[in-house]
Computed example of a mutant assay.
Amino acid sequence: MQHVSGTWSPYLVGMLIGLLSMATFYFSNKPLSVSTAYARLAGLLGNLFYREHTENLRFYQDTKPKIEWGVMLVLGMLLGAFIAAATSSDMTTAWVPALWEHRFGPYISLRLGMAFVGGAIMAYGARLGGGCTSGHGISGALQLSVSSWIALVCFFVAAVSTAHLLYRL
């Protein structure tokens, strides 16, 4: 499969993610995952605005809102995505991608609203499923976890179904 000139090879990136996952297990004995990190970030924000309420939530009694390795991984992912886009032909300042605009119009508010709703659904699913796409799809699959392979199949079925529903591909 040929990749677009100027972009990062998906094979190289996949190999690097696999090596990162193996190194994470080796050095920290932890899986490569981010859903708990997002929950910790939400707890940190909750502490800024309403500490008493956040501290009384059962989840945050067990999982303290703090900056730890997973939070730093999320920040590193954002930085890495920026570097990858800046060093390839993928860097854009468009708030509404062309495919979205063609199907739903040029409305930034609709695009951002749908991104927020989609993110909220994914976050809820990650908490409900005991892990996110990286936790199940990378770390769990690497460990040959049956539940992670089932989750991975469900991720792909949902993604393909959603793409067909939204874009009628």
Rank of each mutant, 00 (worst) to 15 (best):
W100A: 10
P65F: 05
S89A: 09
H53M: 13
W69S: 07
V71D: 02
I67A: 01
T54N: 11
L73P: 03
F104M: 08
H102G: 02
I67C: 01
A85R: 12
G113P: 11
A98N: 08
L79C: 01
E52L: 09
K66D: 05
L110F: 10
R103L: 04
L79I: 06
A86R: 01
V74F: 02
Y60H: 13
H102N: 08
G113A: 13
L110E: 11
L57P: 05
N56H: 12
I83A: 04
F49W: 14
L45M: 15
G46K: 12
N47F: 11
L45E: 09
I67E: 01
A85T: 09
P106C: 02
D62L: 08
L75A: 13
S109Q: 13
G46Q: 12
V71L: 04
I83H: 00
L57F: 11
K66Q: 11
W100G: 06
T63K: 13
T92D: 02
P106E: 08
D62N: 09
A81G: 14
L73S: 04
Y50G: 07
Q61T: 08
V96D: 04
E101H: 08
D90P: 00
N56W: 02
M77N: 07
P97I: 07
D90K: 13
V74R: 03
G43K: 14
M91D: 03
P65A: 05
N56L: 07
F104S: 07
A81Y: 04
L57N: 11
E101M: 06
G80E: 04
L110A: 13
G76P: 00
G43Y: 12
F59D: 01
F49N: 08
N47R: 15
A85P: 04
E101A: 14
F59E: 00
Q61H: 07
R111N: 14
L48S: 10
E55V: 11
K66G: 01
S88E: 01
T93N: 04
L41V: 14
Y50A: 15
N56K: 14
K66S: 07
T63D: 05
T63R: 11
R103Q: 15
W95G: 09
G105M: 02
W100H: 11
A84F: 06
P106Q: 10
L99M: 10
R58C: 01
N47M: 15
H53S: 14
